[in-house]
Structure formats: C-alpha cells, structure tokens
Amino acid sequence: MSWQAVDRTRVPEEQLGPGLSEAVKEKIRAFFSRYPTKQAAVLPALHIAQDALGYVSLRAMKELAELLEIPPSKVMDVVTFYTHFWTHPKGRKTLLLCRSISCELLGAGKLKDAIRQRLGIGEHETTPDGEYSFMTEECLAACDHAPCLMVNEKMHKCVRPEDLERILADADNDRLDIPRSDLFDAP
C-alpha cells in the first residue's frame, strides 16, 4: 500500500512504561474528598504521578483512569492539553526557560542558545546522563526578573548566559529556600 497508518489499536507491553505504586495511589486518593467528582482530581493526580515517575507513562495513565473511574482516553486528553506533563521520560531536573516577551526582550534567546550549547540538547530532550531536561514555556509570571529560568521548583531570576555555569554547578539549584508543603512531592 502506498500510504501508511499509525497503528493505535495495540501497543507493545514495553512501551507502556512504569506503573504507579500503592503509596502514590494512596496519595492521589487523599485528593478525592476535595471534589464532588473523582474526575476532578485528575490534575493533582497527574502532578503526583509525574513527580513519582518523572513523566506520565501510558501505564500510569491507564492506572489513573481506573482509579478515577474514567476511560483512559480522557486522561490522555488532559495530559496532552497541558504543557507541563511529559509523556516521555525526562531528566531529574527540568530547566524551564521563559520565552515570553519580557524575557525575550532581555535576552532569553541568547540564554536558550547557551543552554542548548552547554547541555547539547534541544527542547523536550534530556542529557545522556539523565540529569537535565530542557523546555521553554510561555510566561512564568516573573517578568520583573526577566529572563527567568526555573529548575524544577526553584526560580532563578535575571539569568544571563554567563550565570548558567554557576547555576548548573550548584547541586542544590532546584532546592527551594522556603518550607515546602508536603502535599506534593518534590519532582
């Protein structure tokens, strides 16, 4: 045949990826009481799943669907709509660079080039050692500190390309200096 179709009707077992542990499921169930429907807990559930697995695997989506009593397609729908969820494995730390107008006016473009050169990865890619992943994001709402770069939960402000080395050298570059709430695990 001259055309090819992507086969969505079956998926090899190994592509399903890791599943959720009972502890993670328990953490998700704790959110059920907050909403009148179980489906409403899908966003917190996905955050928790991603924090635990590093990304949202197909198996995790299936297990979440079972947990939330919705078809797995609805979970996939939500996962793909929001930009924060990764459907392929990401590194331990995610560099999230703002590319919105204030940051770009003040040199986010140069910073992006510097990151890509320094780490040798493009957007949505991960370094070979599994340490860093990189993606850009529309507006991190810190335009007063442009250009800004987030490493997991930690916001680095007014980052110039020459600051990059210092940030990457710091092992605790993703550690918040305020007390964390334990509602969500650190990624």
Partner: peptide, 19 residues
C-alpha cells in the same frame, strides 16, 4: 467550597499559599 486555581508555574507561591 473555594478553589484557588493556581497556575502550574507557581511553585514557590504554591508552597507559600498552602502554608
């Protein structure tokens, strides 16, 4: 019930608000 819908990019702010 009041829900504070906070964007995902707010991490530090989430911890402050949650506290």
């Amino acid at each position: 019930i009041a829900y504070i819908y906070m964007r995902g990019e707010f991490t530090e702010q989430f911890h402050i608000m949650q506290r």
